[in-house]
């Protein structure tokens, strides 16, 4: 018999701390497989965020640095400038990348920093207990928007991929989702392509992954997938936003 699917060696044996059905685990696997398939384990350095993925350094079988909240692109810049031939990626949630770290991500793109950002957008703050994020949908209830996000009070959700695609230094920007098998495979191809863009020294790359947070959305993992399909994808259209 031949193996059709097995866990990549780029993931450690550590049991992931994520809640049941949390899609972080899928994103971790896709990133790890991309590194494995590109044969760049020995020169890849990951920068992990503050948020639910704060322990991601336990799960990737590569050198990693833990960044302060939102600062991962700056930390990645420091690493990349010291070792330009390393493959350097950030792994960031929506609070990290789209709120506290907007300056760092925009400016990394602006410099055409040859790093890859893996942006996990689940429209909520997970680790701190389900507060509103800049990506929270209008009307979506969170612990800090208990009556639903009101756009007159706190604006409409931010589309980071579209915004970053307008920046000259961005070389590859794509938004993907994890709601079904086909999209998971597309997400994998996108992540691999982003790494290839970096390796070809073309500029900044980012993959936005529409993800779920069953626990803080108050839904079962399966219901959360349906909610993502019905609510997030219409507002955050999938596809390549920038490719040079």
């Amino acid at each position: 018999m031949t193996k059709v699917f097995q866990k990549t060696k780029l993931l450690t044996d550590e049991v992931m701390h994520y809640c049941p059905g949390c899609t972080h685990g899928i994103v971790h696997r896709l990133v790890a497989e991309a590194i494995d398939e590109l044969g760049v384990q020995g020169k890849t350095v990951g920068v992990v965020p503050v948020g639910c993925a704060v322990f991601a350094y336990k799960y990737f079988n590569i050198d990693t640095q833990e960044a302060a909240h939102g600062r991962a692109p700056a930390v990645a810049t420091g690493i990349k400038r010291v070792h330009p031939d390393n493959v350097v990626f950030t792994y960031q949630g929506d609070g990290d990348l789209a709120s506290i770290g907007t300056a760092e991500i925009v400016q990394a793109a602006h410099r055409g920093e040859k790093i890859t950002a893996i942006f996990v957008n689940n429209a909520i703050y997970g680790m701190t207990g389900g507060q509103m994020a800049p990506t929270t949908l209008v009307g979506q209830k969170t612990t800090t928007s208990p009556y639903g996000r009101d756009k007159d009070h706190c604006g409409s959700p931010i589309r980071m991929s579209e915004m970053l695609a307008t920046i000259e230094g961005s070389a590859y920007i794509e938004r993907v989702a994890l709601n079904n098998n086909a999209n998971i495979m597309k997400a994998k191809r996108a992540i691999k392509k982003a790494f290839e863009t970096q390796i070809a020294k073309k500029g900044f790359s980012m993959i936005e992954v529409l993800s779920t947070c069953p626990t803080n959305w108050g839904k079962s993992p399966v219901e959360a997938m349906e909610w993502l399909e019905e609510n997030m994808i219409p507002y955050y259209p999938l596809g390549v936003k920038k490719e040079v």
């Binding site: 640095q65 810049t77 300056a103 400016q107």
Partner: peptide, 18 residues
Amino acid sequence: AESEVAAINMVYGAAGAG
């Protein structure tokens, strides 16, 4: 860097990279 905040975090990354 774009700010002192970013600059010190770049220092963190570079120092961490040896």
